[in-house]
Design a protein around this nucleic acid. Structure first.
Lengths: 112, 112
DNA sequence: GTTATATTCATCCATATGGTTGAATATAAC
DNA sequence: GTTATATTCAACCATATGGATGAATATAAC
């Protein structure tokens, strides 16, 4: 079993690279072969393949073998985990800081 | 000006390390000194300081100098950027896959 | 002023990362 | 079967990363 923390590590790491984000964005317009993916990125097939390995480890895509080519598909899977983490923290964060601000203001008023 | 892509790089990179996520979680309970932060992490002050530098670069925290200590505070700033990116993609992603599924199902039914 | 405490800085180290290149593999086209 | 195409594999390289250690800095305590 891959633990939660490890999933977040892989997912955030996968998203931290602009080339990989570009790949995910390209895949929004539909599944693509490795060749089609690497073409606009100006890197070799091998480099593309490595990036896809990282995205696949993070469960953000999967590769389907079709003849001599591989078709890459988006896979929602762990993106939701990362999203949930961020969501929870962003929300708490903001509200905690709002509370702090409100508390400071109140304190200020009670002393004013 | 730090461009959008660079912000995402820094933010996701900052979040990709479990030690740094633990730090952010610790800071949810209120501001803390470097010492208080590093204590439960079992790493040196220097390592803690480096991690904080990365979190600060990503605009996720800021350090306030108070006497000989530094107080670390959460800072919502760029977390929202990362969140927005993930949010947009997760939403699109899921709905695109839902659409695909629906389309396949419909096609299936029209052929059945 | 001297000493203790909190933090950072400068090295240094092992490993990970993103990239390349050229060989290997698998399948399609002829 | 031979050749061409799509992709991966195996080195290899330069740089980044996460960590440690010991010296430096700044401030508090005495």
């Amino acid at each position: 079993m891959v633990e939660y923390n490890e999933i977040l590590n892989q997912t955030f790491r996968a998203l931290a690279d602009p080339t990989r984000r570009a790949m995910l964005e390209a895949l929004r317009h539909g599944p693509k072969t490795i060749g089609a993916l690497s073409e606009p990125l100006d890197i070799t097939f091998a480099a593309t393949s490595k990036h896809l390995g990282i995205l696949e480890d993070a469960d953000l895509i999967h590769r389907e073998k079709r003849g001599r080519e591989r078709i890459c598909h988006l896979q929602p899977g762990h993106l939701q985990r990362a999203r949930a983490w961020l969501e929870a923290h962003a929300a708490f964060w903001t509200s905690a800081l709002d509370d702090l601000e409100a508390a400071l203001k109140e304190e200020d008023e009670s002393h004013g």
